[in-house]
Amino acid sequence: MNAERTLELISPSSTATERLGEALARLLPEGSTVALYGDLATGKTCLVRGMAAHFTGKREVHSPTFTLINEYRGNPTLFHIDLYRLAGPEEAVELGCEEIFDSLNVCAVEWAERAERLLPDRCIRIVMRHAGNDRRAVCIVNPGLLPEGWEEALRRAVAVLE
């Protein structure tokens, strides 16, 4: 299971994207970093809201675009980082991203491409795109971090009937 594997899903709605985040959070090992890529309004924050629901029991997630880092305290604490306003990796270093990536907490990074070289070698990458109407294409690249059966679990999360 150490080989890198890629899964392409279509999420039909923001609710499904949230469920996907929740399902992903259930599978994540301690200290994982999830790097999120995708244009405005592709559902990145939505996915993180689902993750937070799993770790904290609450869906109180707001976009960290201005605040840069949000902490949702739970077990473990989820760090929600948004690099949208940053020009590059140096600023992400200033922000303290490396310490968060190295910690045992889970971390989700929006606009991860702004600090690509700081990301841990083995992070989960998720690319989100508009796919017509309200649908979003979600591509998940797992470098062998998620346990066996992850594809089925994630597929099921977006497939549940509304």
Partner: peptide, 9 residues
């Protein structure tokens, strides 16, 4: 650049 903060923090 769309709202960049040069040296946050």
């Amino acid at each position: 650049f769309g709202g960049v903060v040069p040296e946050i923090a």
